[in-house]
Amino acid sequence: MAYQFDRLKVLVVDDSAHMRKLVVTILQAFGIGYIYEADSGERAWTQLMEHHPDICIMDWMMEGLSGMDVTQKIRTDPMSPNPFIPVIMLTGYHSLDQVRQARDAGVNEFIAKPVSIKSLMQRLQSVIENPRPFVRTKVYFGPCRRRRGAEEYRGPERREKKEAAA
């Protein structure tokens, strides 16, 4: 049995019209029922307020509000329509440091461009099947940044140092 993707609402945010067209075409082929588009971070926020999508696929580098800014706003703005919405970042950034930055902004999943159909499907299925617990601390609100869940973590407490510094 396949997922009933026709019930899903997905927001695609990218300042490149061609990338949006490509991602929208892939999502339509997957059978996603409702797809909304935004060409900027500001427009993304408006679309989030208007349509209450279930998943957001977000470019990082955009003029004005970046994908990271929008993600942080989604997680922490008191006006956010859904602080728990899964954010899949689709970006030209590749480095581990950049993946960490995205994670620290509250991104759930990260896909490095070029666009891969299989990666997109994997990340969609991951946010459905393996949602992360949420964490609230003095300096962070968002998906748990440890993939297997904080309660299983037995290593050194790095977050403690960061928060003490903050």
């Binding site: 049995m1 396949a2 099947e129 949602p131 403690e160």
Partner: peptide, 20 residues
């Protein structure tokens, strides 16, 4: 340290059901 950890309800799964 004060960490609140919680699992929001899986609304996506409820919407799309189970896949193969």
């Amino acid at each position: 340290q004060p960490i609140e950890l919680f699992m929001p309800p899986n609304i996506l799964k409820a919407k799309v059901g189970s896949g193969a």
